[in-house]
Amino acid sequence: MSESTFPPDPEAPRPSTPPAGGMDPEPPRPPAYTPGSAQPRLNRPVHERYPQIRPTSGYGDPRIRHTGPGPGAGTEQEPERSSKLSARLALALTVVIGQLWGLTIVVDEWMAGDTGTAWWGTGFLVLSFLVVLGLWAIDPKDR
């Protein structure tokens, strides 16, 4: 098998002949990389080249035109602070549920004529509110 079996492509670039003189041939440098195509029409945006493709990137919501994480993704830099805020919120919600229960007791006792117990229950409600206020005031600038 020899190379003569395959005739050379007449349009293929021919290898440069080494210069005479016995020096090592300098390898040809590749052209500088430039993104895109040499043909400007191929560098147009996708929606210009393929107007039939709806700009939804596959999402059902036509407002979403690009894939990837949404705005704000990757901005969480203090997960401990975030979890503490969640814990504060959970504690406050628990206290408020206890307040709802306490208010039913206050109403029940007052309607039954036990005003003293009703005032004790009111104290419980106020103290619970102070607890929630403290949870809120730990870091008012938190988010």
Partner: peptide, 19 residues
């Protein structure tokens, strides 16, 4: 959290009003 604190304050005021 601010909304919860407001509700909590409302409940406390309600307790005072009932008593």
């Amino acid at each position: 959290l601010r909304i919860v604190a407001t509700v909590s304050g409302g409940l406390a005021v309600g307790g005072v009003a009932v008593a």
